[in-house]
């Protein structure tokens, strides 16, 4: 059990020191890749709230991720073009305006999707979350103002007080800070009264109802929180890559987030961070050798699902890994 704090401490230390290594070796790409990992880790942790703790197998999480990115992208687009959104609202490049708005709108979308999808369960829930996310994908593809399939390219990252987000070091540490903050928040959530209800609903919904608790409103709140987390990750990614496109909302993106969660370890909060980093590293690495890296990734994933259910973090941290 004592392995767990050790792993967390080591992990955090590595993440804190990484920029120093990058500076020493002048490896700016490493820093950029690591920022992307942190962002995906944030999204994966938010999905773990749903799958790992709530038993809500959402195959549409990219919808909230992509929506967060698009909120940032659209506001930046109007800011660049000096135009108005719907002829009404000006754009903005202020992170403190754009980011909360992105989080809010993603959360709102999650709530609406939840109202529809949470009436069902099991395979229906999976298919409906997938279909709703795909609906947003097609919707954004049809917006020719915002580049349709090609999306929006942005000139610069958002303005953030006291920080220069176009400075890779600043941006990296900001992403790290937000990830740590979000994981801390999730830690509180899963151990709260709300978290107990959510985890109970995953284990034995019938018993929970017999205790007098209808899980639906709690699941809705939970889904909204997870959507907000994904939205934050989305607007960060838009800043990171100066670019937004419907591909972010595509269902393969949802699937990839799910793979990160499983690869790292379900219901552990820290596992998905490890999962996100491993998957992105693996993709980078395989990509150097062959353009057909998916041919390696596919069977590998199949083997993990069939034979190694505990995930990487479970292997590292042992039995104490689960449930916060």
């Amino acid at each position: 059990m004592a392995r767990k704090p050790l792993i967390i401490f080591l992990g955090l230390a590595i993440l804190l020191l990484l920029p120093i290594y990058a500076a020493a070796t002048n490896d700016l790409y490493l820093l950029s890749l690591s920022s992307r990992m942190l962002i995906y880790a944030l999204a994966a942790v938010s999905l773990d709230l749903l799958i790992g703790y709530g038993g809500m197998i959402s195959l549409g999480h990219a919808a909230f991720f992509g929506l967060g990115a698009y909120v940032g992208g659209i506001l930046a687009f109007h800011y660049q073009e000096f135009s108005l959104f719907f002829g009404l609202l000006p754009g903005s490049n202020q992170a403190l305006i754009v980011w909360p708005l992105a989080v809010l709108i993603s959360a709102l979308a999650a709530a609406v999707f939840g109202l529809i999808s949470l009436r069902t369960s099991g395979a229906y829930f999976i298919m409906i979350t997938l279909a709703l996310a795909q609906m947003l994908f097609f919707l954004f593809t049809s917006f020719s103002t915002y580049g349709g399939e090609d999306g929006i390219s942005l000139w610069q990252r958002n303005d953030f007080p006291y920080l220069d987000l176009d400075n890779r070091y600043h941006f990296y540490y900001l992403c790290l800070g937000l990830l740590v903050g979000f994981v801390g928040l999730c830690q509180r959530l899963v151990n709260s009264r709300l978290g107990m209800v959510i985890r109970a609903s995953k284990q034995n919904e019938r018993r929970l109802r017999a205790l007098g608790i209808n899980p639906l409103p709690y699941r809705l709140v939970w889904l909204t929180i997870a959507g907000a987390g994904a939205g934050l990750a989305g607007v960060l990614l838009m800043n990171h890559s100066h670019y937004v496109s419907p591909a972010l909302l595509h269902w393969t993106q949802s699937g990839e987030l799910m793979v990160m969660v499983i690869l790292g370890g379900l219901g552990t909060l820290y596992g998905p961070i490890l999962g996100a980093m491993s998957l992105l590293l693996l993709e980078e690495w395989l990509n150097q050798y062959t353009e057909h890296w998916q041919l390696v990734l596919g069977p590998l994933l199949l083997l993990v699902v069939l034979f190694a259910r505990r995930g990487l973090y479970g292997l590292l941290a042992g039995r104490g890994a689960r449930d916060g």
Binding site: S192, R193, L194, V197, A200, L208, L211, G212, V221
Partner: peptide, 17 residues
């Protein structure tokens, strides 16, 4: 959890239950 079901306040999301 059964006590909580009776007491309510199940939306509290911050304090450690």
């Amino acid at each position: 959890l059964a006590v909580q079901a009776h007491q309510g306040h199940s939306l509290r999301a911050w304090r450690n239950a």
